[in-house]
Amino acid sequence: MCEAAEKDLYAVLGASSSDSVQQLKRRYQQLALQYHPDRLGGEGSSEAEYGVEKFLEVDAAWRILSDQNTRTQYDLQRRARELKQDWPVDSTVYLRDMTWDQDECVYTYSCRCGGGFSVSEEEVEEETQRRQQDDEEEEEHRGVVVCCDTCSLSVYVTWSLHTTSQMLKCQ
């Protein structure tokens, strides 16, 4: 459960912590069907690979959140992490799940208020380089807090150090 504790399992399922087990199960079933490797077999290898990764992530989240004991333990750990943060963060968003805007060279993500979050390719590069210079090699994931352009919500945008170079597109 240590690895899963880094991710917001509710966000993985597209749910909230107030959802019932039945609501979580419904969301899990929808995502499992969408990303199941058997359904993605005929598509391109990168899409199929992403689908398998997403399917495994959804399945791991469901295993923890479907059991009352592990869900309670996860909720307590999640709350403890939130209390230690210096900023209010609504959720975690993965860079690979954001929409790429080729014209502006930014990644965007829609906010529930109708506004949006955006992070530039430059910000991603700078944060990755800063962390490398600070000799934080043990951290596999990088991230920044991004505020909505319309409301007061903010999200933590994170990415894997190993996939950053593959994702940067404006060079």
Rank of each mutant, 00 (worst) to 15 (best):
L56G: 07
Y35S: 02
L9Y: 00
T99N: 06
G14L: 02
R63T: 14
E126N: 11
K54R: 13
A5P: 04
V106Q: 04
V155L: 00
E104N: 08
S16C: 07
L56N: 15
Q102S: 12
T99D: 10
K84H: 07
L65P: 01
L76N: 15
E140I: 10
D67S: 11
R63K: 05
G51P: 00
R79M: 11
C113I: 02
K84N: 05
Q22A: 12
L65M: 03
D38L: 11
E138H: 09
N69G: 13
G41H: 10
K169S: 12
V145G: 03
C105G: 06
Y109P: 01
Q22P: 04
L33G: 07
L153C: 07
E43H: 08
D135A: 05
L161W: 09
Q102K: 10
G44V: 11
C151R: 00
Q85R: 15
E57C: 12
D135F: 08
R112N: 14
L56M: 14
T99R: 05
C105L: 02
D135V: 11
G51M: 00
T163A: 10
E104A: 12
L31N: 05
E3S: 13
R26F: 15
R78I: 08
Q133Y: 10
L56K: 12
S20F: 11
R81C: 10
A48W: 10
E43C: 09
K84P: 03
C147A: 15
G115Y: 02
E122P: 13
A4G: 11
A15I: 04
M98C: 04
G143F: 00
E140P: 03
Y28L: 03
D103V: 14
S18G: 13
C111S: 00
V52A: 03
D38M: 13
E57Y: 05
L9T: 04
V157Y: 03
R81P: 05
Q34M: 14
S20E: 04
V21N: 08
R63W: 10
T164M: 07
Y10A: 01
Y109W: 12
D134G: 06
